[in-house]
């Protein structure tokens, strides 16, 4: 690709004391593409995205945003640079309303000086509109997030990131806790976000979900990237084996009657 990737990391290393969580990770994300980050439990996926999101500082390696080397001091810096992360826990507060969650930390204000207050009407309208765009009808934006289904919550979290001008969206296992219908809702939404020109980093265990929306696949194993493959270049099975670290998954799968 000729254009500069929005995010590029080269040989990224991250230590936690004596634990080496990342040991040479390289990847690129450009706008309008979905990069799937695949890897088994403990491979370092969450550590990697937390480093991209400004939660952790890298121990070594290069981290470029729009071609320029960058150091984030806090998640706020990453947000300001257009990198929005939807964590596994979604950063949503079940007791608060959808609107209050949607605008948490970035409340729209009205009025002057010390008398500035939240523009609740606008907040409600925007929340309803943004959710409507992705096909979720919220009748009452004041209802608590706790009453939404897992998939709907995931969509609210993504919609929030998109609304606040993310250039890159990082999603940590957005489909791991979802049923079939909800998964397809989230996957559809990921594709919609990509078609709008955002870059998406989609983290998952599930090769099938990755294949549904991914343009390229980066496999992470024991803190290292095992290379990146474009969609047409690799079969689902091969990817699955790569993810399992070369172990013959077929064998296991065979023993279990082909259910994996």
């Amino acid at each position: 690709m000729a254009e500069t990737p929005i995010i590029e990391v080269r040989d990224l290393v991250k230590h936690f004391g004596s634990v080496i969580a990342l040991n040479g990770v390289s990847l690129k994300v450009s706008s309008g593409e979905v990069l799937c980050l695949l890897g088994d439990n403990g491979a370092g996926k969450s550590t990697l995205i937390k480093t991209l999101a400004g939660v952790h500082k890298r121990s070594a390696g290069d981290f470029l945003v729009d071609g320029r080397s960058i150091d984030f001091e806090s998640p706020r810096d990453a947000l300001d640079a257009g990198i929005a992360t939807v964590y596994q826990d979604l950063a949503m507060i079940p007791l608060m309303s959808i609107t209050r969650n949607f605008f948490m930390g970035r409340e729209p204000l009205k009025g002057f000086g010390p008398f500035r207050y939240m523009d609740m009407k606008r907040a409600d309208t925007v929340t309803r509109e943004e959710m409507h765009k992705i096909g979720i009808d919220i009748r009452d934006p004041q209802q608590a997030v706790g009453t939404l289904s897992g998939g709907e919550r995931q969509c609210v979290a993504i919609a929030r990131a998109v609304y606040f001008g993310a250039k890159v969206l990082i999603l940590d296992e957005p489909t791991s806790a979802l049923g079939v219908a909800q998964t397809s809702m989230v996957l559809k939404y990921i594709d919609l976000v990509r078609s709008k020109g955002l870059g998406v980093v989609f983290i998952t265990h599930n090769v099938r979900h990755a294949f549904a929306v991914g343009n390229r696949f980066t496999v992470l194993n024991r803190g290292r990237t095992l290379g990146t493959h474009a969609k047409g270049e690799i079969a689902m099975d091969a990817l699955q084996n790569l993810m399992a670290g070369g172990k013959e998954l077929q064998e296991l799968s065979g023993e279990l009657g082909g259910t994996i």
């Binding site: 964590y87 507060i93 608060m96 209050r100 930390g105």
Partner: peptide, 15 residues
Amino acid sequence: FASGGDARAARNSGV
């Protein structure tokens, strides 16, 4: 509300 509801989530959202 956010700080009391879930301090970590609130922090991650810039509160």
